[in-house]
Amino acid sequence: MKFVKKTDFIVISAILLIGLGLLWYYSSVTSDNVSAEIYFDGRLVKTVALNLSEEQSFSITEVPEVVFTVYPDKTVAFTLSDCPDKVCVNTGKIGNPGQIAACVPNRVYVRIVGADQSSPDLVIKNNHGK
């Protein structure tokens, strides 16, 4: 086996290009009116509008060990977590619709949604049939 072959560079460049393309795509989606949806165990537990004029931190009752911070530049980030690898905290600030920051050990993730695609504030269920 050789250490490196010429064709490797083509394969690796292709992989890097795909990565760059995806990165460009994720940062190209923007919206003026963004909010952050916080999910725990697959359920939406909190929605925060990202329009604060100053930094604010909070956590959710389901996982008090995890602290989120909303920034004035319309971004949100995991700022504290008790998980071992801190992937969530290291993800940093997110603020473009579609972006996700996740903490797998705590089963929490934050998803950014634009104004046109945010979840409804209230869902009225029809329970008559039950």
Binding site: G19, L22, G98, Q99, A101, A102, Y109
Partner: peptide, 18 residues
């Protein structure tokens, strides 16, 4: 585990993999 595809992590995963 989270019940949602974490597409946002895909580019990071490719770059860090390389």
């Amino acid at each position: 585990i989270l019940g949602t595809p974490l597409w946002f992590y895909l580019p990071v995963l490719l770059f860090s993999g390389v």
